[in-house]
Simulated scan of single mutants.
Amino acid sequence: MAEGVPVVTQPNADDDGAWTTLLPELIALLDLTPDGEDRFAAGHSTASVTTGHVFGGLVAAQAVMAAGRTVPADRAIHSLHGYFLRPGDAAVPLHVEVDRTRDGRSFSHRRVSAVQDGRVIAEFTCSWAIPRAGIAHQTGAPPAPDPETIRPDHEVLRDLPVGMTRYGTSPDAFDLRTVGLGPGWFESKVPAGEPTLVWKRAAGAVPDDPLLHAALFTFASDMRILHPVLRPHGLAMYGVDVRPATIDHAVWFHRPVRVEDWLLWQCESPWAGDGRGFVRAKVYGTDGTLVAEAAQEGLIGLG
């Protein structure tokens, strides 16, 4: 493995925690090692090594960290767009390469490639901007119960029936609390476009680094975002007969994000077809401020 890339050990495959990445490990994985001009060595999580699945949200977060290290300090990230081109291999070193496309008076643009064995497995474009005054408006936040009154998802998921994977049944880097999650939730068909509401918050303290918070938010933006694609059909993303895979992903940052604060994700799927499904999300703070939006398209394999 390349110098500077963390080496992780493989836990017992029967351990539910093998499916998760805890916050201290995630923060360490975002501390990238310089490996040439605008090139960084990036590590794999224990969960990736154990399951053989490289989580796209981690690769996207590492891309944000790499690009952010090449941008002037007076600019904040406002968007990320990415395509996942090939499955990642947790047994192969990962490098993140940044192309400084443009630095203008107000905006900086970066193209980022995640590379293994000389092949690009994911490609991103990121844009940073200097904040400035102008017109402002936003849509209102939906009504939702206080997150402290909702059981954490990993506790609820432990009670789900046989036939579901163990994914999500142990504490993770983020505390997720889905409104209404419980027995029968996945099997109940809902109209296409009906929102799924999820509170998310980092499961611990995070250093006061805006770039790190943006990268962690990017990681969280890929956590279970495709649920609404399955719900109109009474299917579960955790079902053993469902095989989701992300094709492309986007995040728009409207405000600086603080992942230690509760954020309400309003996710909906307006369309699915041709073996694909699409989800868009609005993200609100507890005060109702619209802080970000995200969108993802994924392949949905069945059977």
Rank of each mutant, 00 (worst) to 15 (best):
M1E: 06
E3D: 06
E3S: 06
Q10A: 14
P11M: 10
P11Y: 09
A13F: 11
D14M: 14
D16I: 15
G17I: 11
T20Y: 05
T20P: 01
L22Q: 14
P24S: 05
A28W: 06
L29E: 12
L30T: 07
D31Y: 02
D31C: 07
D35S: 15
D35A: 15
R39S: 12
R39I: 13
F40H: 03
A42V: 02
G43E: 03
H44R: 06
T46Y: 04
V49K: 12
V54R: 00
G57L: 01
L58M: 09
A60M: 13
R69Q: 13
T70H: 01
D74M: 04
D74C: 07
R75T: 08
S79R: 09
S79H: 08
H81S: 13
L85T: 08
R86V: 12
R86G: 04
D89I: 09
A90K: 08
P93H: 12
V96E: 02
V98E: 01
R100H: 08
R102W: 12
D103N: 14
G104C: 05
F107P: 00
F107M: 10
V112H: 01
V115K: 04
G118P: 09
E123K: 04
T125H: 04
A129R: 14
A129M: 13
A129G: 05
I130G: 00
R132P: 00
A136V: 10
D146H: 07
P147W: 08
E155R: 13
L157D: 09
L157V: 08
D159F: 09
L160V: 11
V162D: 13
G168S: 08
S170W: 11
A173P: 00
A173K: 01
R177W: 09
G184F: 10
V190N: 00
P191N: 00
A192C: 00
V198L: 11
A202V: 12
A202K: 06
A203M: 07
A203V: 03
A205E: 14
L211S: 04
L211Q: 06
L212N: 06
H213W: 09
H213A: 10
H213T: 13
A214T: 13
A214G: 05
A215K: 05
F217C: 02
F219V: 10
A220L: 04
D222I: 13
M223R: 05
P228I: 06
V229L: 01
V229I: 15
L230P: 01
L230G: 02
G234Y: 07
L235V: 13
P244S: 07
I247Q: 02
I247W: 03
P256D: 12
P256L: 05
R258Q: 12
V259W: 07
E260P: 09
W265Y: 15
E268L: 11
E268A: 15
E268I: 06
P270T: 14
F278N: 02
V279P: 06
A281Q: 04
Y284K: 06
G285C: 11
T286D: 01
T289M: 12
L290D: 01
L290P: 00
A292W: 05
A292M: 02
G298I: 08
L302R: 15
